[in-house]
C-alpha cells in the first residue's frame, strides 16, 4: 500500500483554483521532489496536505497510510505522522522551544498509545538532535522562532522533524533563504532521517537542495498540474533549460 496517494486533487483559495488535478503516489522509503515555477501551486499542495483550512478542496481524494487525509483536522494529520516544515516558520512569543516541542511530541505519543515524556526524559533527545543540526545551545530555551535568523528558523523546522519522527515529511521550500552551510546542515538532518518506513516530499524552486538530498523521483508542477515526472536527472535538466521545457507531456502515475 502506498503511504500517500493523491488522486485528481483540485483546491482553491478565495474561489481561485490553484490545484487543477494533481495525481501523485509516494511509497514509504522514497524521496520525491516537487519543482516548479513561482505560482505553480507547490506550496498550496503542501498546505492542503497539512490540512490548512484556508485552502478549499473542491475535488479529488487523498489517502494517507490508507486513511482519508482530507477528512482530518491539521492536528489529526500531524498525529497520524504527517509533518510539514514551513516555508515561513511562525514565532510563538513567550513559549520555550523545548517546551513547545515536548508538548507536540507528547500529543503525538499519546495518540500512538505511548507514555508521555517528562522534561528530564525529553532533554537528552532534544540535545542530541540539536547537535545533529549544529544548533547553538543558546537556542534551546528561547521562545519558538523568536529572534531566530532565517537560517535558524529553517534548522529549527528540521530539528522538530527529527524529534517528531513523522512517516511523511513535507519540506516546503526549506532551502529558500539558506546559505550553503545551512543548506548542507539541513540536508544532513534530512538524510539522517531517511529510512524504509519514511517518505519525503521536498518542495523546492531550485535544484541546488537536490545536490545534497538526492531524490528518487522529481515531479514538475506547472499551473496546478504535474506536467512531467522523472528521476534525479530531471532536476538537472530543469536547471539547464528552465521550466518552459518541462511542459511537454504529463505522464500519469509514474510508478505503482
Amino acid at each position: 500500500m502506498a503511504l500517500l496517494e493523491i488522486q485528481d486533487l483540485h483546491a482553491s483559495v478565495g474561489g481561485h483554483e490553484i490545484l487543477k488535478g494533481v495525481n501523485l503516489t509516494l511509497n514509504a522509503g522514497e524521496v520525491h521532489s516537487i519543482m516548479g515555477p513561482n505560482g505553480s501551486g507547490k506550496s498550496t499542495l503542501a498546505q492542503v496536505l497539512a490540512r490548512r483550512e484556508t485552502y478549499e478542496v473542491t475535488r479529488g481524494r487523498v489517502l494517507f497510510d490508507g486513511k482519508d487525509l482530507l477528512d482530518m483536522q491539521p492536528e489529526e494529520a500531524a498525529r497520524e505522522g504527517l509533518f510539514m516544515a514551513f516555508q515561513y516558520p511562525v514565532e510563538i512569543p513567550g513559549i520555550g522551544n523545548a517546551y513547545f516541542l515536548r508538548s507536540a511530541l507528547n500529543a503525538i505519543r499519546k495518540h500512538r498509545g505511548q507514555d508521555e515524556l517528562d522534561a528530564m526524559d525529553f532533554l537528552p533527545l532534544y540535545k542530541e538532535r540539536m547537535k545533529l543540526l549544529e544548533m547553538d545551545d543558546k537556542l534551546m530555551n528561547r521562545a519558538v522562532n523568536e529572534g531566530f535568523s532565517g537560517g535558524e528558523k529553517k534548522r529549527n523546522e528540521i530539528l522538530q522533524m527529527t524529534v517528531l519522527e513523522p512517516k511523511l515529511a513535507i519540506l516546503d521550500e526549506t532551502d529558500s533563504g539558506l546559505d550553503i552551510d545551512a543548506l548542507r546542515i539541513v540536508a544532513q538532518g534530512v538524510n539522517a532521517m531517511r529510512s524504509p518506513e519514511r517518505a519525503f516530499l521536498v518542495i523546492t524552486h531550485y535544484q541546488r537542495l537536490l545536490d545534497y538530498i538526492t531524490p528518487d523521483f522529481v515531479h514538475v508542477l506547472v499551473d496546478g498540474k504535474i506536467v512531467r515526472s522523472g528521476g534525479p536527472e530531471l532536476a538537472l535538466e530543469l536547471e539547464d533549460k528552465g521550466y518552459g521545457s518541462a511542459e511537454v507531456d504529463a505522464p500519469e502515475a509514474l510508478h505503482a
Binding site: A50, P74, E75, F83, V90, E91, P93, A107, I108
Partner: peptide, 25 residues
Amino acid sequence: ENQLFYLRQRGLTAEDAVSMIVNGF
C-alpha cells in the same frame, strides 16, 4: 491563523494551541 495552524500542524489541538499562545503572551 498562522500561529494556530503552526501549532496544530505539530499535533496540538486548537484549544491547546490557543492556551499555549495566551500563556506565552
